[in-house]
Amino acid sequence: MCQIKKEFFIQNATEVAPKILGMKICRITKNGEFKTGIIVETEAYMQDDPACHAFNGITKRTAPMFEEGGISYVYLIYGIHYCLNIVTGIKGSGQAVLIRAIDLQKSSFEASGPGKLCKYLDIKKDQNGILFSKENNLWLEKGIEVPDNRIGSSHRVGISKGIDYNWRFFIKNNLYVSKLK
């Protein structure tokens, strides 16, 4: 399959987040194992959004978010779980799309939720700031077509600021999408 080119990510996170639903995320782990899944849930974060890590500007942690779209932004939450984001937009715009869940299609391992997804794909801090590409063993490819009427949106999960933004996108009726309480 053909990998998604860097130029695709030079648009706002709110545009990229629903467009990557149905795409395949591919990873070759350090031990050479190929892993893949269909992206079924995402969240967009823009710099003017108080829930966005880039909201307060550039720091050592958020520096990748201010690079040109197409690179990874990986961070640790609760001191134990990694989260994988794709930086979007033009250089300096401070935005990214969190990949919340993938469908492994017949695998027994569950990759619903950003922490489980990163565990499955063996994503850690050393993947932070790398270009999504085959050369870096982490890339996106075309996957399945998701018609607009199968894409849902809602408020994002697990945040206390910016809760009015409906920037969580998901494939409706997919088993691996987070259930809202």
Rank of each mutant, 00 (worst) to 15 (best):
I4N: 00
K6I: 02
K6V: 03
K6D: 11
E7Q: 14
F8A: 11
F9L: 02
F9P: 05
N12M: 05
A13E: 08
A13S: 15
T14L: 11
A17V: 12
P18V: 00
K19P: 08
L21I: 10
L21Y: 13
M23N: 15
M23S: 13
K24F: 15
I28V: 15
T29E: 10
E33R: 06
K35E: 09
T36A: 04
G37E: 11
G37Q: 00
G37R: 12
I39L: 00
V40R: 05
E41P: 09
T42H: 03
E43C: 12
E43S: 00
A44F: 08
A44C: 12
Y45P: 04
Y45R: 04
M46V: 15
Q47D: 04
P50V: 10
A51H: 01
C52I: 03
H53F: 07
H53A: 05
A54V: 08
F55K: 02
N56P: 01
I58P: 02
R61E: 06
A63L: 09
A63F: 01
A63K: 04
E68F: 09
G69Y: 02
G69I: 03
G70A: 11
I71Y: 01
S72I: 04
V74N: 08
V74D: 07
I80Q: 06
I80T: 13
C83W: 06
C83A: 14
N85Q: 11
I86R: 05
T88A: 11
K91Y: 09
A96I: 08
A96Q: 01
A96N: 12
A96G: 05
V97P: 02
L98K: 08
I99T: 01
I99L: 14
R100C: 12
A101Q: 02
S108H: 14
S108N: 15
E110H: 14
A111P: 08
A111V: 03
S112A: 11
G113Y: 09
G113I: 05
G115M: 03
K116I: 08
L117H: 03
L117V: 10
C118K: 09
K119P: 00
Y120D: 01
I123W: 07
K124F: 11
K124M: 02
K125P: 04
Q127R: 13
N128W: 11
I130M: 03
S133A: 14
N137D: 08
N137E: 06
W139S: 04
I144G: 04
V146A: 06
P147I: 10
P147Y: 12
D148I: 14
N149H: 14
I151C: 05
I151T: 00
I151G: 05
G152Q: 07
S154K: 10
V157K: 13
K161C: 01
K161S: 09
K161F: 03
K161V: 04
I163D: 02
D164W: 05
I171S: 08
I171K: 00
K172R: 15
N173R: 11
N174W: 01
Y176D: 14
S178R: 14
K179S: 15
L180I: 15
L180D: 14
K181P: 15
